[in-house]
Design a protein around this nucleic acid. Sequence first.
DNA 1: GCGGAATAGTCAAGCCCTCAACTACGCTGG
DNA 2: CCAGCGTAGTTGAGGGCTTGACTATTCCGC
Lengths: 173, 173
Amino acid sequence: MTSQVWASSQEESAQSAAQPRWLDAEEQKAWRAWLNSSMLLADRLDRELTREAGIPHGYYEILVQLSETPGRMMRMSELADRCLSSRSRLSHAVSRLEERGWIRRQVCESDGRGQLAVLTDDGFEALEAAAPIHVEGVRTHLFDQLSPEQVAAMRDIGETLLRHLDATPAPQH
Amino acid sequence: MTSQVWASSQEESAQSAAQPRWLDAEEQKAWRAWLNSSMLLADRLDRELTREAGIPHGYYEILVQLSETPGRMMRMSELADRCLSSRSRLSHAVSRLEERGWIRRQVCESDGRGQLAVLTDDGFEALEAAAPIHVEGVRTHLFDQLSPEQVAAMRDIGETLLRHLDATPAPQH
DNA sequence: GCGGAATAGTCAAGCCCTCAACTACGCTGG
DNA sequence: CCAGCGTAGTTGAGGGCTTGACTATTCCGC
């Protein structure tokens, strides 16, 4: 509580760059609770999945998206969007999954620039093996901890934030 | 919605490894809204801070923790815990902040094994410059979007999850 | 149909993080 | 008082991610 940089002029309520709209103590607690819990939960789930199934959560996400698609294939760009991933990152990740034999690339017939990522049978089996581990983690660390009201609020908050973030242009990806 | 791996035996409610407790459609939506919103928000704040202040959010976190401490210094381990960071990661990060002249290391007198990370005046100035940018991002992308009730619920959910995660032993860090 | 702009995807360099040693110091029991 | 163990922190190797440049293809206007 000593020498906080925002302890200067707390009584302001001006706009943006002029006078920062500092967070009060309650807001800080809310923000930290949200940030820390989301970081720790994501980290925990990723570690458990990596340890017990040998699949990092990011890779798991890719497999899930492909498995839910007709033909179990998808354009690289769309896959990147759905996985909240940059194209470069997805390209690297798919290369590594290709080495594991879980995905193969296929040129897109309707667009010569495009590539399709296709989930292989081996990839589907790997996903089937990993899914119970992941879902158990989400149950244990999330749904088992929250009341139905909290779950509803969590969804509501998440969707509210997503609407804003989707509508606001990020510098780039 | 095609060929989902968890479409097999939905009617079970047995325990853990035996029969997975799959998520129903509502739970999936809640989970994805929470996961995606927290990932996107963290990413957005990190990018804005990096772009406009030249400080990644992880480094900012370190500076904040030190600035709030009497003497603006802290043991490496405690700093790592507060930043939700591994010791190795913090050690690397402090080395890089040392190169920027924002932190210096100092041996701990009461424990010859220990090191203190000390925030320099330059580091404090860098934090002062970055803080308004960060707080404006948190306002814009979080608090401006949510009602007071949503903020209260967010904090409640976050604290509930943190209690569980802190109480549950993670394999290791 | 042709030239320029936009789009799809990949690649390389550099940074950051993780994992697993490793050093150094402190603590405790015999 | 020292052997062994636990703790604090660092380091290096290896791999993932980001940025920005690059190639290939398609779209669009004239």
